[in-house]
Amino acid sequence: MRYRFRCLLVAAVLTLSWFGTADLLLAKESCRISVDTILAARNDTVVDPQLKRHIGELQAMFNYTSYRLLSSESLNLSVGQSGLVSLPGDRRLKITPQKIRGSRADIALQMMKQTRTVFETQVQLLNRGSLFVGGPTYQNGNLIFKISSAY
């Protein structure tokens, strides 16, 4: 009886420890990248309902009055694999997860417009976190790209 109790206790402790450290020990091999393209403008006050939860703080920082979701695209990418997302204004965003460890993924981003590279950057994106890339003019406003990762 005592032996059984001890075995159960050890199993419980090991299980709990595993749940606590599994994320750290097991390297993830792929992640899901989402790119939401938002048009921020000042000509009206429309805010798409699906954006309200994500841009609450942005509204306080920018002087735009409307936020429209133009497109949304998701990619499942393995480490080292590149994915391309088409963006308005003849732009493309090349996304390459390079390493995933702990709570962050190292991701290389390359923004291209027509045939030239606008910028290249290396970011460490928090799991279920987002990077907002904005600035390019489009129609009557500016584009904001919300790049999110989850794994």
Binding site: L131, F132, G134
Partner: peptide, 28 residues
């Protein structure tokens, strides 16, 4: 997001974050 490197040909770029949830914003 933590931006480790950034190169490109543009007029200006700003990197900042929102005060409460610390959402990283790259504005160029």
């Amino acid at each position: 997001a933590i931006i480790n490197s950034f190169t490109g040909s543009m007029s200006s770029v700003m990197i900042f974050e929102t005060p409460e949830t610390r959402q990283t914003i790259l504005w160029y």
